[in-house]
Amino acid sequence: MIDPASVLAEFGVELPENTRISVWDSTAEVRYLVIPMRPENTEHLSESELQNLINRNSMIGTALATPVDEATP
């Protein structure tokens, strides 16, 4: 993928200019599990509250987890 930052932008993900981007091309039968980056101010949250912050796209690397103040309970 020549321009991953632009592809992510097509998914609505705008990353800061200095973000390091690693593309993992699944060329064999090995599959990779994406662990979304933990949003700020989530240290006090329970497991089910944290689950609220993730979605399909954040688990495949095309979205960030939802920030706490934008989450719907």
Binding site: I2, R20, I21, S22, V23, W24, S26, A28
Partner: peptide, 21 residues
């Protein structure tokens, strides 16, 4: 390195991984 595969200018900090036999 992304620059190895896709030329410059690509960030020296961007990488592409692929599985190879």
């Amino acid at each position: 390195q992304a620059s190895e595969l896709f030329g410059v200018p690509r960030s020296q900090h961007d990488f592409t991984h692929a599985d190879c036999w």
